[in-house]
Amino acid sequence: MKLRVTGAERLRRCVVVAAMLASALVLVGPGVASADDGCLPTVVIGVAGTDQGPAHPPPAGVGKNELVAQVGAEVAAAIAPIADKLGPLKVTPINYPATGVQWFGAVGAKLTYDISAYRISKDTGYSRAYQELKKQAAECRSAKFVLIGYSQGGHIMGDLAQSVFHGNGPVDRARIAAVVLIADPAYNGPTPRTTEAIYSQGKLTQDQDHWPIGGSLGQRAAFETTDPVVSICIYGDPVCDGKDLFGQDGKFKPLANQDMHGFYRGHPFEGSKDFATWAGTQVVKIIQPPPPTNPPAPAPAPAPAREPVTIAQTGPKTVTVTVVDAAGAGSRAVRCWNATDATHNWKSNFLGETQVDIPRNGTFTVTCPTAPKPGTFSLEFFNWRWSPAIQWR
């Protein structure tokens, strides 16, 4: 079955090679050949935003098998420069509901998140992306992965990246070559390699002031400087800049700036044709950095491990949690699970959610709404990380 890739003229051809949860596309451009195990060296997992992707009708004039229809226009734009410089690539779209909150309801979504269709959609997307990453990593042991998501897809990819980087994912962190988050609803402005843009007169310009902004559905814990994550947001976009109702310009963001969620394509930015394409060029720099002009300085001593979390059963429904240098300090939702990650069965393994105040350093207690069953148990700290698993007795 042949496919045509819209908006990526430099990609020479595109062929469907499999279809399960997602279709797998091969984008062939200049670059290295396939690895000894017969697999391509780079695999992109792309997750479209709300109302985009395989579960929805394609945009007008776009065939259902085109790349834009499978991963959304923003993710496709970010893929184009990666395929141009690093090809051949395998691209796997994730087929998930992609429903729930719209950009114009981002503020209200925070208040209804726990009972929203968005939560069900996002968690389904996470589980499917997790399983697809696990499956492809096992099939192609030499491949490295690039995770790209827009809007709700960015929320999913950010959560999956954090799972991997904290040792709770399906692959070792060394196999994640790069992550691109476009308009992440859990955007965290101070995170390394975040870039904000200001829209004016049809163009986007990079902002140098970097006043702190955050996503409409909470701020995820900051990634480390060693994490290969590129995260972008346009000031006023009520999805990734929705933590506060009013911007620095005094405008009520959900009403005055609501269209900005769609400005990641079609507006030039920093020499690229748009913001999403620019994000893809940053991936190339991460994966293939330019050679140093001077001899490299001695490598610094490795930083001490951060965010260690330990848990211990202390009662039929209570858990004592100890944290050290917790980047996720503050008031957070905590979920109890008879499982180790979000690939479990919700009906049988989800034990409910509670709110706790997490100190930077210290010990606190979590009381699960439902008593855990004997066996595997772990805690999910929303938009931060998972605890190590323990055996509940």
Rank of each mutant, 00 (worst) to 15 (best):
M1N: 08
L3F: 06
R4Y: 07
R10G: 13
L11K: 02
M20H: 13
S23C: 10
L25N: 09
V26T: 13
V28Q: 11
P30D: 13
A33D: 13
S34C: 10
C39E: 06
P41R: 13
V43C: 09
A48G: 07
D51M: 14
Q52K: 07
Q52L: 08
G53P: 04
P54T: 04
A55D: 06
P58M: 08
P59Y: 04
P59C: 09
A60N: 10
A60V: 14
L67F: 06
A69F: 05
Q70G: 07
A80E: 15
P81K: 05
A83S: 11
A83K: 01
A83N: 07
P88K: 01
L89I: 01
L89M: 05
T92L: 15
P93D: 14
I94Q: 04
I94W: 02
Y96I: 02
A106G: 15
Y113F: 15
D114Q: 14
D114P: 06
S116E: 05
G125W: 01
K135F: 10
A137E: 02
R141Y: 00
K144Q: 13
L147G: 02
Y150C: 03
S151C: 06
G158E: 01
L160I: 09
R173H: 11
R175F: 02
I176M: 07
I182Q: 00
A186T: 14
G189N: 05
P192L: 05
R193Q: 09
E196W: 00
E196Y: 03
I198F: 08
Y199I: 05
G202E: 07
K203M: 11
L204P: 01
L204W: 01
T205S: 14
P212V: 14
G215H: 00
S216D: 03
G218A: 02
A222V: 09
E224P: 01
P228M: 00
D237Y: 03
C240T: 00
D249L: 02
D249I: 02
L255Q: 02
N257P: 00
G262F: 04
F263D: 10
P268T: 01
F269Q: 00
K273L: 10
D274V: 06
F275A: 15
A279R: 04
I287V: 15
P290G: 05
P290C: 05
P291T: 08
P298D: 09
A303G: 06
A303C: 05
P304E: 11
T310C: 04
P316S: 14
K317T: 12
T320I: 05
T320K: 15
G330L: 09
A333D: 10
V334S: 02
N338P: 05
D341K: 04
T343S: 12
H344M: 15
H344N: 12
S348M: 13
N349M: 07
G352I: 10
G352C: 10
E353Y: 01
V356N: 01
D357I: 12
T363V: 10
F364M: 03
V366D: 00
N383A: 11
S387P: 05
